[in-house]
Simulated scan of single mutants.
Amino acid sequence: MNIEKEREAFEQRFQHLDLDFVEDLGYCESETQYAWAAWCAATKRADEKLEGCVVVPVEPTYAMYQAYEKHSVAPMSTLSKTGYKAMVEAARGGK
């Protein structure tokens, strides 16, 4: 978690709160400090959930096709493309 990036996003989202911040102590208002702690916990949990994951395009790119053909024992086929799309859809929570 990039704490500075998260603090910037937090302060952008919660502009209506008192955002006075003291280095090494945190936010001055307890309501803001509670909100910040919750934000950090949620961000950490999201990071842990995605550990071991990578982002891939829904449709394979030309470079992906080339890598497949270079390392596969069989040529790229409609079945390979359909299988890739099915795996992406399953990872997204689909069928």
Rank of each mutant, 00 (worst) to 15 (best):
Q12P: 00
E4M: 05
N2R: 10
A41N: 05
E89Y: 00
V58E: 15
W36T: 12
H16Q: 15
C28A: 03
Y68Q: 03
A46Q: 11
E59T: 13
K95S: 15
I3D: 11
E51Y: 03
N2C: 08
Y84T: 07
L79G: 11
S77I: 01
C53P: 07
A74L: 15
L79F: 12
E51G: 01
Q66W: 08
A74I: 11
L19S: 02
R7T: 05
V58R: 14
E69P: 02
K81S: 01
E29F: 06
A46P: 06
A9N: 14
A46I: 10
E89A: 08
K95D: 14
C28D: 04
V73S: 01
A37L: 08
F21W: 13
V88C: 05
F14D: 10
E51S: 08
V56H: 05
G52C: 03
L25V: 01
E29A: 01
T32A: 12
S80D: 07
E23K: 15
A41M: 09
R92D: 04
G94R: 12
E89H: 08
A90F: 11
A38R: 06
S77C: 05
R45I: 00
A46C: 08
R92F: 09
Q12M: 12
L19H: 13
L19F: 09
D20S: 07
V88G: 04
V58M: 12
R13C: 04
A38W: 07
N2W: 11
